[in-house]
Each structure stands twice: as C-alpha cells, then as structure tokens.
Design a protein around this nucleic acid. Structure first.
Lengths: 225, 225
DNA sequence: AAGAAAAAGTGATACAAATCACAAAATGAT
DNA sequence: ATCATTTTGTGATTTGTATCACTTTTTCTT
C-alpha cells in the first residue's frame, strides 16, 4: 500500500505553483499513501506525528459524538487534513475517512515545523488556512442548527453540485445514513425528503447518481427552511 | 470612553508572565477600551484592523444566522478575541458583546503581525490557540446537536459553574432567551426546563442568581440526554 | 451466478420542542 | 415613585422528526 516517492506531485508541486515555499525542503521526507474508498485515514483518539495533505480524492471529517456519528465537513483535494489537531496536542480529535479513492501525503511533523519556522510566507499561509477553516465551521454549524431538514438537505445538494463536483449531475458518494450524519437526522428522514424532492421534480435519482433539475427550487428551500 | 495607557497590565503583563514575547514591543501601540455590560465590542460584517485581547470581563461570540441569533461560545478573560477573523480576511464574521463590564486591549494589526514574524514562540503560541479553539468549536457543536434540551441546559450550567465562575453559586449574566440562543432553543423551553430543574431540587434560583444544589444530577442529565 | 449483507423505501405511531397567547414579575427611565 | 419596557412563567395546541417495524432493492462476496 505504501510507496515512497521522491518526486511526487502532491504538495511539492502544489507549493511550487503557489510559490509558498522551497519545495526542495521536503525532499523525500514525505510518503504518499493510497486509500480506497471507505477506508479510514485517521482514527479519532489516535496519536499522529504527520501532517497530511490530500492530493487526490474526497474525505469526510467525522467525530464520534455521545449518541451518533457526526460528519463535521467534507474536504476535497487539494487540502491539508487535520491541521488543528496535528499542530495542536497531536491526539486526533476526529476521524478522517476516504469517500472516494484517495492519495494522501504524509509529511513528517519535524520537517513541517522546520518549514513553518523558516518560511514566513508558508507559516502565514498555514495561519490563514486555520482561520478560514474555523470561521467556516462556525457558519456550517449555525446553518445546520437553524434550518430544518429540507433546508439542510437542499444545502448539501447545492454544496455538492457547486463545490464538490462542479456540475448538476453527480455520483453521491454518501449513503443516506451518512447524509443523515451530515445534517443531523436519521436515515429514514433523509429518504423521505429525497423522495419528496424527486416527486416535486427538483432532483432525479438513479441509484447513487443524482441530477439536480431545479437549482432555483433548491435555493428557495434552503432559504425558507 | 477610550483612554491610552502606556503601562497597562493587559497583554503586556500577560506576556511578561508567560514569557511569550518581549512585552516592550507593544510599547504604547495599544489602547484599552472599557465596555459596559451589554454593549457590543465587535459587530458582524464590520472591518477590523485591531487584534483584541480581553483583559477583564466576559463576552459572548454570536452570529446572526438565517433565523435567529446564535451564541457560538462564551469567552472569559484573559483571552484573545476574534483572532481567526482579524488574521483572516479582516471582515468580522461574528459579533462580540460584553456580558459583564469589560476591558479590552486594541492592538494594532501591524504591530501584531510584526510580533508574529519576529517572535517564534509567540507565533507558535498563536497557532496553538487557533488550533485549540477550532477543535473546541467542533466538540461544542457536536454535543449541542446530539443532545436534547435538558442535556444541553445541564451542560451550560455545569460549564458556568466550572469554567466561568468557578463556584456553584453565580449570577447568570444571560437572559433566558440568550440561553436559548446558546443551546438552540426558545425562551419558553429554557424557562420550562429551568423550572423542572428547580422543582427537582437540582438548582435554586433567585432572580438571575442560580445556585447548583446537585451537580451529580446535572451530570447525569448531561449524559443521557 | 447465488446467497448474504447492506442500503433504501415507506407506513404507523410517539414525542420533544415550537408556537401562540396571556398574565405576572422584574427592571429601567423620567 | 410611577409608568413603560423588557423579562419571566405557564397553559393549550401544533408540528417536524424520531422511532419502530417491515419489505424491497442494491451491492458485495466467493
């Protein structure tokens, strides 16, 4: 499963284009690991000494709450994974699981820290990343708790089409109970609302393939709960 | 309202004790502002070029959601305020309001950035702060959406007595509708549950003064929803 | 390709909390 | 001290969603 790679295109290439730091610093101090769809990348409660960078695929960040599993957010490439916990106390506060086949760079924490220290642009960039992601979490959370089911589901569908797949037609890589975990509801309720959306002609479903037929309606539903 | 202060004890003193950076760097590049209970310190959507440090008092972080006001968290001194937004895109993503009389240091963002650049320990400290607060947000959010009202209210009371006032007897600086905004429910429901807690002998109330009579019960309620 | 396991669909029922509607009490302003 | 305003307390009713129970369909395994 593991395979070393000296000249892999992940963050090295990413930084080269963004001009964020000397890509050379990484050298072969990182490793690319492939994860098949559905496999865990990080497990809540475990110890971590690597910074992860998602160079291919899509993952979910989820935490085991008091009663059910809760999906906090989805992250698509290219992006760092779990920065706050790796930089923080090293104990992973959440799990990360592959929703599609993924390729993840594991960067040694020492190297990462050296980069942080030596490169102002880079550390600035990381700081900004953290800020953005916290604000993002706030918004996400506020929306979810204030809207009701139809609104939240509409949001998920819109988000998928706009940000995750950038098309109105996509293969939803989540089961209905996973969608439930994302919008804080049960599998059954997700099913019911999706059926409603279908019979209202807002979406069309074929297995896990979803096509959004009426984005305007979805946005309306998103707005008035 | 405003008054300059060259030798104020806020962050200067704070850093001196924590040995996080040369307190001198701040010099008189910061200003202390006092806010009376109930007054807004930062308003969502406004532009900010200062880093804030709460040296006295208690504040709420709240965002105007699609339907109601939502309190994201309470912050007591000593603590930075709104770091992610000030460091980020400078537009405040949430409001901050004084719950008790407060004193806040306004530090010029340029100075703050210079400190970040020049002092490794300091920037490390800020990085850690950000990480901690993000993870904290996750947990808070997950708990709230998974438990039901009684559990959430119990949590708020426990949090107040343990972290905010460090005593079982406190003057609750929130109205019932504010508590509602904190646990995502209505004023009426908060009232009802508090009454229940009273008649169960778990708490005692005199106006806004709340005394916790049975912490064990509260923890039980917190645990099993 | 066949059988097992997981996911999806859907009705009936239960229930926590929202909403509405007032009255009582507390707090602030003049 | 008095009046106005904001908070609190509580009942009656509605409602969105959870829960339970079962069937059908899809997906995975060997």
């Amino acid at each position: 499963m593991k395979n070393e790679c000296i000249d892999c295109p992940c963050i090295v290439k990413y930084f080269r284009t963004l001009n964020k730091c000397q890509a050379e610093e990484l050298g072969n101090n990182h490793v690319v690991v492939r994860f098949k769809k559905g496999y865990p990348i990080i497990k809540q409660g475990t110890f971590s000494t690597n910074v992860l960078f998602l160079r291919k695929g899509l993952v979910k960040i989820h935490i085991t709450g008091p009663y059910r599993e809760q999906i906090v957010r989805l992250i698509k490439r290219p992006s760092y994974l779990g920065l706050p916990t790796t930089i923080g106390d090293k104990i992973n506060q959440y799990s990360i699981t592959a929703l599609l086949d993924c390729e993840v760079c594991f960067i040694d924490l020492n190297i990462f820290n050296r980069m942080l220290e030596q490169n102002k642009d880079f550390s600035n960039y990381i700081l900004l990343e953290l800020c953005r992601s916290e604000v993002e979490s706030f918004r996400h959370c506020a929306n979810r708790t204030q809207k009701q089911l139809r609104g939240n589901l509409a949001d998920v569908l819109i988000d998928f089409s706009e940000n995750i797949f950038e098309s109105n037609k996509f293969l939803l890589p989540l089961s209905q109970s996973e969608i439930g975990n994302l919008v804080d509801t049960t599998r059954e309720s997700v099913c019911r609302v999706l059926s409603e959306f279908m019979s209202d002609g807002i979406i069309r479903m074929e297995g896990k393939k979803i096509e959004i037929l009426n984005t305007r309606s979805l946005k309306m539903i998103s707005q008035n709960g």
